[in-house]
Simulated assay, not measured.
Amino acid sequence: MDNTSTYGKFDKFIHWLMALNIFATLILSYGMSDLPEPLKPEEYGGHGASVTTIAICLIIRAIWRARQGFPPLPTTMSDMQQLAAKAVHYLLYICLFAQVSVGIMLASTTKQDFIARGYNINYSSFDLVNDAMYDTLLTFHKGIYWTIVALLVVHIVAALKHHFVDKDDVLVRMLPFTKRS
């Protein structure tokens, strides 16, 4: 297990690749289910590509974290703050895995082909659940969406608090181009 106080290049790369894809997906997918049918294949292709990238990164990152562990949190953080930090991280992972899973099931109920651009994966061909589940799955998908947004806000605000209020290295150790110590 790695006991350095910051994250390595691979950790930072996978974190920021996921972050960029998550933000793009959250912004660009808002209201996607309400689009007119002719526009959906194009939107599905981009959404599928971004989500597939997130899923791959999630799997790699979960395996990497399980093997490497996490750098220790600053000793200046209270036990409650450390528990909250861990809870937000784990809830974010769980919600992202759930969102991808529900999204794949949802895509398998669509009438339009849901083909992830660049990956050429047709999620609508998986036929995982009955088409009658579409509305229920869409409701879950939207609920998880807002839960992810809330968790990301907490995550970002906490990182900024650490940097500007606590003046510790919690934010800096995940920034690209900072040295590992």
Results as ranks from 00 to 15, higher is better:
A98S: 14
M80V: 15
Y119G: 01
R65H: 08
G45K: 04
I94A: 15
T147Y: 02
L152H: 00
V149G: 01
L92V: 06
D127K: 10
L92D: 09
T136F: 06
Q82R: 15
R173A: 03
Q68A: 12
V51R: 03
M32N: 10
L58R: 04
H47P: 02
A159E: 03
G48T: 05
L138Y: 11
L171G: 00
S33L: 06
A19C: 07
Y134K: 12
L39I: 03
I121Y: 03
S50R: 09
A132P: 01
Q99N: 12
F10A: 12
A62S: 15
G31K: 05
A84C: 06
I115D: 09
S108M: 08
L73M: 13
K40A: 09
L160I: 03
T110I: 02
Y90Q: 13
A87M: 13
V170N: 00
N3L: 14
H141I: 10
T139R: 08
I59W: 04
R67Y: 13
A159L: 07
V153A: 08
V100H: 02
S29M: 12
L128N: 05
P38W: 05
H141W: 07
I94R: 01
A84V: 13
L20N: 05
D131I: 06
L92A: 11
V51N: 05
K111P: 05
A150K: 01
R65K: 13
A85K: 01
N122V: 07
P38R: 02
K167N: 01
T53I: 13
T53M: 11
D34R: 09
I27E: 03
V157N: 00
G46F: 15
L28S: 07
Q99D: 09
V172R: 13
Y44P: 02
A87K: 02
H163S: 00
L28C: 05
M1G: 14
Y123L: 14
A49F: 14
N122R: 04
A49R: 06
I94F: 10
S124E: 09
F97K: 04
K9Y: 11
Y44I: 05
I14A: 06
I59M: 10
F70D: 12
A107P: 04
D113L: 05
G143S: 09
A87H: 01
M80Y: 12
D11C: 02
R180I: 08
R67I: 15
Y119F: 15
S33W: 07
F114S: 12
V153G: 02
N21V: 06
Q81A: 14
S125R: 08
H163W: 00
F97E: 10
G45R: 05
N130H: 09
S181I: 09
Y30Q: 10
L83K: 13
D135K: 07
S78C: 06
L151C: 12
A85H: 02
F164W: 10
I63H: 02
F177V: 09
M105A: 15
S29P: 04
A49W: 11
D169E: 11
D127W: 04
Y134L: 09
L106W: 11
T139K: 12
Y145Q: 07
D34Y: 11
V149Q: 01
H15A: 09
V129F: 04
D34L: 11
T147W: 05
C95F: 13
S78W: 03
M1P: 10
E37K: 12
L96T: 14
H155P: 03
M174T: 03
L106E: 08
F70V: 07
V100K: 01
Y145D: 07
I94K: 01
